[in-house]
Nucleic acid binder design. Structure first.
Length: 262
DNA sequence: ATGGTAGGATCCCTA
């Protein structure tokens, strides 16, 4: 059964419930993974999603910050959540499809502004989160698994508008790229988006602060779709819906899609 | 070199 999956940092699921519904109507992914819901689970606007056919949901939330959800037209089992770096925040939830495929939905800490853990605790937490992720996937190698989310790191030179100008900017520093690469390597995760689209600039996030985000196009690829090696070859048709960044009252992230023939 | 925008909570934090 082939299915299409999307991942989207929605930056408040309550404020942007209408945009989520628009995406479900117009693009109709089978599964939509959301991050930065900024809401407790019992206040997420799930009824409107269920009315569109997305009645299967696993989610973790907290007041004001973080929060992740997986909305699905296909039946889901709750497969638990992970708390890395001892943060105690709603940054991960996992779901299991009926065929056994596990979907991990992550919201990795952004890491603050200064890329130095000696003066910025948040940067240290981000690195520790990635180290714990590495250890977790080293100890339980993923199999028939998909990992998506806002990983808050743009690893490749062509994942940012200027490699040189972003080398000291949190999200593209060498130490972060190394930590993300270690987590990816520990699980033998395949970067599905880049396997599908190996060449050229690719962004999923554009700052709110730009005067004209579209014209300036100073983007970064912070949102990712990975797959375990046993199912990675089943993935195809990756794309980023840049148009969603131009919708009314948008998230600063665009949704990333992939289809799996499983 | 700086400040720019956005959301949600609280009178500031995080992104």
């Amino acid at each position: 059964m082939p299915f299409t999956l999307a991942t989207w940092n929605i930056n408040s699921v309550r404020l942007r419930a209408g945009l989520v519904e628009r995406l479900l109507r117009e693009e109709a992914p089978d599964i939509l993974c959301l991050q930065e819901c900024k809401s407790p689970v019992d206040k997420m606007p799930l009824e409107g999603f269920a009315a569109l056919g997305y009645g299967h949901v696993v989610a973790r939330g907290q007041k004001g910050y973080n929060g992740v959800a997986i909305l699905s037209r296909l039946p889901l089992q709750d497969a638990g959540d992970l708390d890395f770096a001892g943060l105690g925040q709603a940054r991960h939830v996992a779901a299991r499809l009926e065929d056994g495929t596990v979907i991990h939905n992550f919201y990795v800490p952004a890491g603050g502004d200064v890329p130095d853990r000696a003066v910025n605790e948040k940067f240290g937490q981000k690195l520790d989160y990635l180290t714990d992720m590495r250890d977790f996937f080293r100890d339980s190698r993923p199999d028939r698994a998909i990992l998506v989310g806002d990983l808050n790191i743009a690893p490749r030179e062509d994942d940012v508008w200027s490699h040189k100008q972003l080398l000291k900017v949190v999200s593209h520093t060498p130490i972060e790229v190394e930590h993300l690469g270690n987590a990816q390597a520990a699980g033998h995760w395949v970067d599905v988006t880049r396997a599908d689209i190996p060449q050229g600039q690719l962004y999923s996030w554009w700052s709110y602060r730009a005067r004209d985000w579209d014209a300036a196009d100073k983007g970064r690829r912070l949102d990712h779709v990975w797959a375990s090696p046993d199912i990675a070859q089943a993935a195809h048709s990756s794309r980023i819906l840049r148009a969603a960044r131009g919708w009314d009252k948008p998230s600063d992230h665009a949704p990333v899609f992939a289809t799996f023939d499983l």
